[in-house]
């Protein structure tokens, strides 16, 4: 029973982080039909901002707020630098500019700070554990689960109840039509990037909180996770991204628990087999998005 409870907490903590990562990626994809390959660097930027603020006397929560703000700004800059100038021209161009922007940010960190890992400040509560029904678990895991629940709820509220949310959903359903009806394209897209940055920034605090360190290549895994989760859940659906995130965490954690050591080496092969099976069954992912509209 305790083992099962432990498993549930582990899956939910990992899944919460995965779901937020996936949501941040899919919100931009939903509107632009373009994957932001510089997404992982939002997490890196958050980490390095924390590192740079590390020596300062600021309380941690303020450092974290600044770091998340930097991720939001970087998200907006990504739009202005990599997407806006070329997004109406060709998909290939945007693919390349977003890769280029990702490389640029990574190498900037590498040259200006160091290729070696740097430690980030954490609040004491991130290093503490609680006993929960016989299970000793880091408080950080519970914070991750709570953060995911709160953010997902807020996000759902924003999308369903606010004018901006309505505009974004309209843009995701049919961008051209939305524009004709007076939805300002640039504002909606920039907002999507800002929200993407916000989600990435907050998830970065939790994700980097596990290792208490940041390195130039730290964003690769979150990007990959977000990408796979959205593919499973449905590239066009926000709910799909969240479900995909939790499902991927469930698959990964189960395999980590169940596979014998000899096979554990090949865990990723099993994960991707599961992903392929899901896609064979539901080629568009688990949840279908709105009827396909045209890209800008």
């Amino acid at each position: 029973m305790t083992a099962f409870l432990q498993f549930v907490v582990d899956v939910l903590a990992l899944g919460g982080a995965y779901a937020l990562m996936a949501l941040g990626l899919v919100i931009v994809y939903g509107i632009l039909r373009l994957v932001n390959f510089a997404y992982g660097e939002l997490i890196m930027v958050t980490g390095y901002t924390l590192f740079l603020l590390g020596g300062s006397p600021l309380p941690w929560i303020l450092m974290a707020a600044v770091a998340v703000l930097m991720a939001v700004l970087t998200g907006i800059v990504t739009d202005h630098v990599a997407f806006r100038p070329v997004r109406t021209k060709s998909v290939t161009a945007v693919l390349i500019t977003s890769f280029a922007f990702s490389t640029l940010l990574q190498n900037a960190a590498l040259l200006l700070i160091s290729p070696r890992p740097r430690s980030v400040p954490l609040p004491d509560i991130f290093s503490e554990t609680v006993r929960l029904g016989g299970v000793v678990t880091p408080v950080r895991n519970l914070i991750t689960i709570a953060t995911a629940v709160v953010l997902l709820a807020l996000f759902a509220l924003l999308m369903k109840r606010s004018v901006l949310g309505l505009a974004m959903r309209a843009a995701a359903a049919n961008f051209t039509m939305a524009r004709m009806l007076g939805v300002p394209a640039n504002l909606v897209i920039t907002s999507a990037f800002a929200i993407s940055g916000l989600l990435a920034g907050i998830v970065a605090l939790l994700w980097l909180g596990r290792s208490a360190s940041v390195a130039p290549g730290i964003g690769l895994e979150p990007l990959l996770v977000a990408f796979i989760a959205t593919v499973i859940g449905g590239m066009r659906s926000l709910e799909g991204a969240v479900i995909g995130g939790f499902l991927l965490a469930f698959i990964d954690t189960s395999l980590n628990h169940l596979l014998p050591q000899d096979l554990l080496k090949f865990r990723d092969a099993f994960t991707f087999t599961a992903v392929i099976l899901i896609l064979l069954w539901r080629p568009e992912g688990l949840i279908r998005g709105p009827a396909a509209g045209r890209r800008t």
Binding site: A3, Q6, F7, W207, L220, D252, T253, N256, H257, Q261
Partner: peptide
């Protein structure tokens, strides 16, 4: 026990169990 970890996972929960 000889356990396996995959770089980048950032999750050690199964091994820890």
């Amino acid at each position: 026990l000889e356990d396996i970890y995959t770089n980048g996972d950032n999750d050690f929960s199964a091994q820890l169990a």
